[in-house]
Amino acid sequence: MKPVITFALMTLRNLLRRRTIWGICIVILIALFGIGQIPSYGVSNEGRFILDFGLFGLEIGALLLAIGLASNIYPRDREQKTVMPIIAVPLSRGQYLMGRFIGAAIVEAAAMIVGCIGLMVILLMNGHAVPADMFPATLLLLIEGWFLLAVVFFFSFWTSPPLNAPLTVLLFIVSQLSVSGFIKLFPQAPGLMRALRLLLPHMDVFHIKDPIAHGMNIPGLYFLLAIFYGLAYMAFMLSVALVVFRSRDLK
């Protein structure tokens, strides 16, 4: 485990030294700040509005961060051949993948914490209470972000970064659709569409911003189940990514 942790910290430092991550975080905070300003233009229930759109913003932020963080890590390593001396001697491919993933996951977690605190500050500045469920809701969004990170890593082993981003966004969108909604995309082949949809993850599991914004209580058991589901899917994606990575030649 020590090699993986060391490599994860190396990845973390690398990502923090690249300025793009700071750019994405600043964009998230500006977006949250903007959401805090809109209610003053006359929309009622502004607390609900801020919370609802703020959590939505965090979700989109998690998606953008996952793409921004991970889509270029392996292709850059391969292009610049920095992966060779690492894989050749100190690390196995599995350790490389886990190290890179954990490093990116830490950055994603830190960004989500910053976003959550930003949302809290905006709520308080506008004179609204911060619902206790906001924290587990952010945790679920983080789990969703980690899952997306695993998806981006999976795509990065067999596609180029320009293709990785739209593929991930597409997966993110269709994974929100119900089976019937997915079939409507191509109603000519309902059986095929149903089969395809059932293979995709169910990201609506992570969506609790609406009930939270409406002041409803989410059972604790549901949070645990959703976290377990998200982590299991993440582990599955990473396993498939590792199998693909192991089958690749490093030319």
Binding site: H202, D204, P211, P219, A226, F228, A235, F236, S239, V243
Partner: peptide
């Protein structure tokens, strides 16, 4: 949404376990 439909929570648990078993097999 899943949070409001407790009757599918068992399915979430089942799928999570299947995914973990699949990961281990892979």
């Amino acid at each position: 949404q899943p949070w409001a439909a407790s009757f599918i929570w068992g399915k979430m648990l089942r799928d999570a376990l299947i995914l973990l078993v699949l990961s281990a097999v892979i």
